[in-house]
Design a protein around this nucleic acid. Structure first.
Length: 277
DNA sequence: GTACAGGCAGTAT
DNA sequence: ATACTGCCTGTA
């Protein structure tokens, strides 16, 4: 492991030669020991390596399926260390609510501000970190307190999500056991959660590896390299019904691990555009 | 001052 | 179903 892609996980940072990341209530510490990478968590998190780095995924099956596509086959060999990480579900949904209509550095700023204002301080290696706030803490915050973290109009959606979690209208752990379609339907009921945010939460935290989030970068990639799945009348901003058509096309084409293919395409498009997260 | 980042809700047709 | 608008904020 040499780097963490902050386009996927926003609250990781490299200090010295050690990577630190926030996973809900926990601070993760990733260092390079002589005998390979070492992950520790504060406080202790059961099977953190397996959980966070998705060591339970059968990568040979996954690669066998997604590399049936020639472009993805090239990208898998070009970016040999690229992986999906598993995020803590609540942190993930609030993170992608903040990701609405803005860029990655702004998302990181919003999330850092939320952790400083509503999270708990934990010292690791003498450095102060802040854990991710609980839904309860965000629910009891006022809109103005949330807005003071720089989240702007997203404050209303943050409150809506927090409220749904606190009153058990939205049970993310239960959605882990639902089908992709059922879980997506549940997420779409919440104010501020649309197709793209729902698919990101499903892929990055709820183990729905067939989810294929279509953001603007991936839309362009599909229009360019998989144009048979992309009606030329569609712009790169898709309406709900257009999104359904295109994402279904991609899920059918790439199969049950379409989300892994999406990650390679996303990284490729950003890399090609010279973006540096 | 303006353009840009770029997903969702809301309204009109 | 599509077409269009407004939206916080910070940087270029």
């Amino acid at each position: 492991v040499t780097s963490i892609n902050s386009g996927q996980v926003f609250l990781w940072e490299e200090i010295g030669s050690i990577w630190y990341g926030i996973y809900g209530n926990h601070v993760l510490r990733l260092s390079q020991a002589e005998d390979g990478p070492e992950l520790s968590s504060f406080p202790e998190l059961e099977k953190s390596e397996q959980r966070v780095f998705r060591l339970d995924d059968d990568l040979s099956s996954i690669f066998a399926e997604i590399t049936r596509d020639p472009l993805v086959r090239r990208l898998v060999s070009r970016y040999p260390g690229l992986r999906l990480l598993r995020q803590q579900p609540e942190q993930c949904i609030f993170s992608f609510v903040c990701a609405n209509n803005t860029n990655i550095s702004m998302i990181r700023r919003m999330l850092r501000n939320l952790t400083r204002k509503f999270g708990k301080a934990i010292k690791v290696d003498g450095i102060d970190f802040f854990t991710f706030p609980a839904a309860q803490d965000l629910d009891s915050a006022s809109i103005d307190e949330l807005r003071s973290c720089g989240v702007g109009y997203r404050a209303k959606a943050i409150k809506a999500v927090a409220r749904s979690i606190v009153n058990a209208d939205l049970d993310l752990d239960m959605l882990k056991r639902s089908s992709y379609f059922k879980a997506k339907e549940e997420l779409l009921r919440i104010y501020g959660i649309g197709d793209k945010i729902a698919d990101c939460v499903l892929l990055f935290s709820l183990d729905k590896l067939e989810a294929f989030p279509l953001d603007i970068w991936i839309s362009r990639a599909v229009a360019k390299y998989y144009s048979w799945a992309y009606d030329p009348r569609f712009s790169d901003k898709l309406t709900h019904s257009q999104y359904q058509v295109v994402s279904e096309g991609m899920r059918n084409y790439f199969g049950r691990y379409a989300g892994y293919a999406q990650q390679y395409l996303y990284y490729y498009m950003r890399h090609k555009a010279g973006m540096k997260w």
